[in-house]
Amino acid sequence: MIDADLMALFTTLKMATISTIILLLLGTPLAWWLANMQSKVKVIFEAIVALPIILPPTVLGFYLLIAFAPQSTLGQLWLQLTGSPLAFSFSAIVIGSVLYSLPFVVQPLQRAFEQLGDHYLEAATMLGAKPLDRFFSIVLPMTKASFITAASLGFAHTVGEFGIVLMIGGNIPDQTRVLSIAIFDHVEAFEYAQAQALSLSLLLASFVLLTLVYLLNYKKVSR
């Protein structure tokens, strides 16, 4: 692997890690809200969350590109806040990945919360536990496996993301060129050996990660 590829690997890991943290911080309350929503409007929100699964990444990427552009309100705001444009920055690909991977984090969590029900939460309430206390003392430990699943799916999905990152990141070396784009570049340039080496490492890393996740889940279930 050449330096540029190592750089892409580093960028990918950085992007995936930060995205996963944000996904968990954002996805948990969202999943909780959806799981406890009584109204029929719920299905609309569920559909919105699930949209990135169906939408071609390039479509989502294109809309994000318009939203992040310095001409847009969001782009302006970001520019004023940070002094640098949002589009084609590392922050942009993180935001893009968060949106794109959101259903992969929200859905397993929502399902876990729904399955958990309110039996144990009522019991905790009657012992004087306040909402956040209940979340950390009951919900989190009882749905740990789903959190691991959600986090690793979010992480893996972010690592594998291509279309959006290419669109809003701009393939800038050392900033927004991630592994998937580096592989694409190698293929485009007929550097098949390098493309294969990178693909293989991505494949192996993903395989190891997912195996670990399922192993953890398996242990949890069989205990």
């Binding site: 552009a69 290419l166 393939n171 800038i172 070396p173 050392d174």
Partner: peptide, 21 residues
């Protein structure tokens, strides 16, 4: 120098939306 390679149409879109090339 840094090379950012891509499809001409795609690169054009990105430049339109402020790509820092």
């Amino acid at each position: 120098t840094q090379i950012i390679s891509g499809v001409t149409g795609g690169l054009y879109q990105q430049i339109k939306y402020g790509a820092p090339y």
